[in-house]
């Protein structure tokens, strides 16, 4: 449970930590688009290089990244294997009923593996180097245009803030309740899938109950302190756009253009 990296922030003073969350978010989104559109070995080579570079820049030990990717690894390998087994191409090496292994299939399999891994690593870089609260501020800013089509952006951002805020609590509480049930002889991750799922009931039920209670308490506290959803609100924290942010975006766009060029010429 505590292997999950989602929503965890590792404090630091690196270049990436200091970057404006808006710049980080936009760059990350652009890179994810790039990763999805990449279709040849050279592009992937460059993207791997950039990802490793960014991971290095973050100053977070790389072992942390790989521990974060571990729980997802099986899912990624599973998806990649499916691609590999069921795609036909120019040259089919093995044909056995539905299963075909072809040159094209192997390539798409590997590319899919690359795509998922790269996206996970990149988004981990963003979450590890951005405080959740900054992340929400950046997100709110980027959504602002939607206010004109009556999307309740402020409420959305409040919900997001609260959700982020309670992730660590929820993880700690889950750990605590798992411990409590372990004491009473409940074993996790043992036996058939059905038994394993059954072992989770005594954990999820208390968590649901506690979470609902806490949500109600929080709503009351907000009411008491005069929170009103329909009011215009100012922000205590201000985002500052600096030269390095412009630089970061420019570099991202330049890389995008370069890769597009590569794609069209190959």
């Amino acid at each position: 449970m505590n292997k999950l990296l989602l929503g965890r922030y590792v404090p630091g003073t690196s270049f990436l930590h200091r970057l404006d969350p808006r710049a980080k978010l936009v760059s990350a989104i652009l890179f994810i688009v790039l990763i999805f559109t990449a279709e040849n070995w050279l592009s992937f080579f460059i993207l791997w290089g950039i990802t490793f570079g960014v991971m290095h820049l973050s100053g977070v030990p790389s072992s942390i990244y790989f521990r974060g990717i571990k729980p997802l690894l099986w899912l990624i390998i599973f998806t990649a294997t499916l691609q590999m087994l069921f795609t036909t191409g120019h040259r089919n090496f093995i044909e056995w009923g539905l299963i075909t292994i072809s040159d094209y299939g192997i390539q798409t399999g590997i590319f899919i593996f690359f795509r998922f891994t790269l996206i996970t690593l990149l988004s981990t870089v963003v979450t590890l180097t951005t405080r959740p609260i900054d992340f929400t501020d950046g997100f709110t800013f980027l959504l602002k245009p939607l206010q004109y089509v009556k999307v309740p952006v402020n409420e959305l951002s409040m919900m997001l803030t609260i959700a982020f805020r309670f992730i660590p609590n929820l993880l700690d509480e889950t750990q605590k309740i798992m411990d409590a049930q372990r004491i009473r002889g409940n074993e996790f991750g043992v036996g058939s899938i059905f038994q394993q799922m059954k072992a989770l009931v005594p954990v999820f039920l208390p968590i649901f109950v506690n979470t609902l209670n806490r949500a109600e308490e929080l709503a009351n506290t907000m009411d008491v302190r005069g929170y009103r959803a329909d009011q215009k609100r100012s922000s205590f924290r201000k985002l500052h756009w600096q030269k390095i942010d412009t630089l970061c975006l420019t570099v991202t766009i330049a890389i995008m253009a370069l890769l597009q060029l590569l794609n069209s010429t190959m």
Binding site: K176, I177, A180, R182, I183, P202, V203, P206, V209
Partner: peptide, 21 residues
């Protein structure tokens, strides 16, 4: 571990949060 847990009963802080049935 399981044998030890049967011999040593541990009541955590706010144990009521573990009730589920």
């Amino acid at each position: 571990l399981k044998l030890v847990r049967k011999k040593v009963g541990l009541v955590l802080q706010f144990p009521e949060s573990q009730l589920f049935a």
